[in-house]
Write a protein that binds this DNA or RNA. Structure first.
Length: 128
DNA sequence: ATTCTTACA
DNA sequence: TGTAAGTA
């Protein structure tokens, strides 16, 4: 078994994830409803989160703290966002005034790092 | 004891 | 988002 398999392995119940991310169960479930994460389910319908899910939630939390709304976070975490211009259009179209001003410039620079660099540390430094 | 869904403040 | 209710 390789690292990727390990990172995507369904291991933690929501109670663990709450402690790890300091998010409420309400928020975690809400983000799932909005397709920002897709945790596995046990036979009893209980959510099981992987390391990737936890990292993802941490990133979501960071963006949210920076003032980006769900629509914006969704775009930032979307693998299809390879070009800043593309994301910029969608962002301004969906979240209008919220992201338009702030995200315009920052997404442009962030986009220059490409998909693989759209991770926690690297991109977050653009959001001040 | 925990988590889940639904629904209302 | 928080929280209450009724379950699984």
């Amino acid at each position: 078994m390789n690292d990727q398999d390990r990172r995507s392995m369904p291991l933690f119940a929501i109670g663990i994830v709450k402690k790890l991310t300091e998010l409420t169960a309400r928020q975690i479930r809400y983000y799932e409803d909005h397709d920002l994460i897709q945790p596995e389910r046990t036979t009893g319908n209980q959510r099981l989160f992987s390391f990737n899910d936890v990292d993802r939630l941490l990133e979501i939390k960071n963006y949210l703290d920076k003032g980006v709304n769900l629509a914006g976070v969704k775009l930032l975490l979307d693998p299809s966002m390879k070009k800043a211009e593309e994301a910029e259009e969608k962002a301004t179209e969906i979240t209008e005034r919220e992201l338009r001003h702030m995200l315009k410039h920052e997404l442009y620079e962030a986009g220059r790092f490409g998909k693989s660099s759209l991770r926690q540390g690297e991109l977050s430094r653009f959001f001040h």
